[in-house]
Design a protein around this nucleic acid. Structure first.
Length: 593
RNA sequence: CGGGAUGUGGCGCAGUUUGGUAGCGCACUUCGUUCGGGACGAAGGGGCCGCAGGUUCGAAUCCUGUCAUCCCGACCA
């Protein structure tokens, strides 16, 4: 390709819309253009990058025994109604774009394809003899993100590879899950990304085991915790650790202590000289369940710990055996709306009576009470007295009259001791989620009544796995991980071109001819090569070449008359002056070591 | 949806406080000089100042409404 004919519009100024480096560079280097909020055009250079990535993904998926298909993007509502997800995905905070056709039929624009594929599998896979099957597709997904962000990182339209596997047994599912884990590691490695597999919460998609692949980068939206010894890594939503010990309270009788104006743990401890680990804090939430009930929650946690909302939602879901659509803190305004008496915020104890909920307009009349183990394991502690400006000192679960069950509801934090070995501690990093693999189990096959006949002639629902890679996000994550002050430094495997021949002065016949000769030679050698044949000053061409980040550059310039050129490595900035033939061999060796 | 900010040629911005009919840099076009790290000079083209009302002799500027975009929280590949 000739740069003179390439649609390449580079910008000197950073568009105001871009916050993070990778987004700025993709815009400046002419890879993407914003068309609407969270909607981007992939310009020719970007499209080449995406094709390089999908080629790697295809190879590895095919190698792992998966088969490529292409599923529709328009999904009839009935499919989603059958799985029970239509409501949750379209109403309120729902993430699915949806529409009505001229007949008044409802359709959704696919944010994910469990429903479609599971219903197809039920029709096509009748016998255990056909199993296992792993189907994948690479296509555009639509999600009406609450807040699109950071260019391709969180778009409303994005390219994703998703795969779904169907199995006759859980053991077989686990085997394919393992194969996918290995395939994913290879994919990210081949794409030149440093991606860490971490234990993850399976979230809205549901299911048993799940693992995310995180590209470590400061701009990442997720917080991940990694052990010093590298044996354990998890998303903060899922991460577990051993909490630090609480400072014990001196023995003594229970006391009521006036605490006017001390509504936060911090102010309370500052004023009274207590340690936050001696206090049980109580947080009130209201959870929206999938049967539309609004369940008030009372959560107890040791004062020095942070609550993990994902763990709370999962605990609610497990306890009540219902899905949790939303979980938000109860605020003083809620008492007005529910027409109940004001709650003693700042002085709530774990034994806050259900009486406070009597007469609530839409809430359930009793609290679901949950306690983190850091709180439930305290012998004696300080807590609110359920009366404004009053706390209880040296009380206990016996005195309070209820010993809650111990759950893990807290955030693991950097510095915490690991569960797998007390020798190791956790550190925090930020990560960009580029892949996620799940063992779904039978959740969808049961809901969609998608079944096969087993060896014993009985019908049963499939065991399922699902495996996603954010292809367009991966491309931007690669830029986030590979750039310098001058621009992008693509890993060769996913660079739009492997090499660029820069003719310093195209009007110099010697330079032009040698440049053209090298260009054809490289093309004939199967190298993806660009030639910058523009009538621009050399400086402009160098700046552009750096910006767009082609891994190798051959500069044909003032030494062209002696047949000497420069071979430049973009990422290391290493320059070698070489006879042109040698530069070509050297370049090809660099590409295929 | 809650909190914050911004809308002025393709991009980055000034002008808004104190109303007088729009300007700068980059980019673009032409010519000349220059030619290995985003050149210089000259000449040019391009904007109903987000949109709709209102106030006024007169609105980018003041008032009301509305829309859009971006940032911080809830969602996820």
């Amino acid at each position: 390709m000739r740069v003179s004919r390439l649609l390449l519009v580079t910008l000197r100024d950073v568009p105001a819309e871009a916050e993070i480096t990778s987004h700025q560079l993709l815009l400046r280097a002419g890879y993407i253009r914003r068309v609407g909020s969270g909607i981007y055009a992939y310009l020719p250079l970007m499209w080449r990058v995406l094709q390089k990535i999908t080629a790697v993904v295809r190879e590895e998926m095919n190698r792992a025994g998966a088969q490529e298909t292409l599923l529709p993007q328009l999904h009839p509502a009935e499919l989603w109604q059958k799985s029970g997800r239509w409501q949750g995905y379209t109403a309120g905070e729902g993430i699915m774009f949806h529409l009505e056709d001229r007949q008044g039929r409802e359709l959704g624009l696919g944010p994910t394809h469990e429903e479609v594929i599971t219903s197809l599998a039920g029709e096509l896979l009748r016998s255990y003899r056909q199993l296992p099957v792993n189907l994948y597709q690479i296509q555009t997904k639509f999600r009406d993100e609450i807040r699109p962000r950071f260019g391709l990182m969180r778009g409303r339209e994005f390219i994703m590879k998703d795969a779904y596997s169907f199995h006759a047994s859980e053991a077989d599912l686990r085997e394919t899950y393992g194969v996918m884990d290995q395939a994913y590691r290879r994919i990210f490695e081949r794409c030149g990304l440093d991606a860490v597999p971490v234990d993850a919460d399976s979230g809205a998609i549901g299911g048993a085991a799940s693992q995310e692949f995180m590209v470590t980068a400061d701009a990442g939206e997720d917080l991940i915790l990694i052990s010093d010894d590298g044996q354990y890594a998890a998303n903060q939503e899922k991460a577990v650790s051993i909490p630090s010990a609480a400072s014990p309270l001196p023995d003594g009788p229970e006391e009521s202590i006036p605490t006017p104006g001390l509504g936060s743990i911090e102010s309370l401890c500052d004023a009274k000289g207590w340690d936050p680990s001696q206090v049980v804090k109580v947080l009130l939430f209201v959870a929206t369940l999938d049967d539309e009930t609004l369940q008030p929650l009372l959560v107890s946690l040791r004062g020095d710990q942070e609550l993990n909302p994902t763990k709370v939602a999962n605990a609610v879901s497990r306890t009540l055996n219902k899905g949790v659509l939303d979980c938000r803190p109860i605020t003083p305004e809620d008492s007005n709306r529910q027409q109940i008496d004001p709650l003693p915020f700042g002085s709530i104890g774990p034994d806050l009576s259900d009486d406070v909920l009597q007469g609530a307009k839409t809430w359930e009349p009793t609290f679901l009470r949950l306690a983190d183990e850091t709180a439930s394991e305290l012998g004696s502690f300080i807590c609110g007295a359920n009366t404004p400006d009053l706390h209880r000192f040296n009380t206990s679960w016996t005195a309070i009259g209820q010993k809650p069950t111990s759950l893990d509801l807290r955030n693991a934090r950097a510095g915490d001791v690991c569960q797998h070995t007390p020798e190791s501690r956790l550190t925090e990093k930020r990560g960009i989620e580029v892949g996620h693999i799940f063992q779904l189990g039978r959740k969808y096959s049961e809901a969609m009544e998608s079944r096969f006949t087993n060896e014993n002639g009985k019908t049963e629902p499939f065991w399922m796995g699902c495996y996603g890679i954010g292809v367009s996000r991966l491309a931007q994550a690669a830029v986030e991980q590979h750039h310098d002050d001058s621009g992008i430094c693509w890993p060769t495997a996913i660079a739009p071109f492997e090499a660029i021949v820069v003719v310093a002065n195209i009007q110099d016949d010697t330079q032009a001819q040698l440049g053209e000769a090298l260009y054809s030679e490289l093309q004939n050698a199967g190298v993806d090569v660009l030639i910058d044949d523009r009538k621009e000053r050399a400086g402009v061409k160098f700046k552009d070449a750096d910006l767009i980040g082609i891994p190798w550059r051959i500069v044909v310039g003032r030494d062209a008359s002696e047949g000497t050129v420069e071979l430049v490595c973009r990422s290391s900035r290493e320059v070698q002056k070489l006879p042109h033939a040698e530069a070509v061999t050297c370049l090809i060796k660099g590409l295929h070591p």
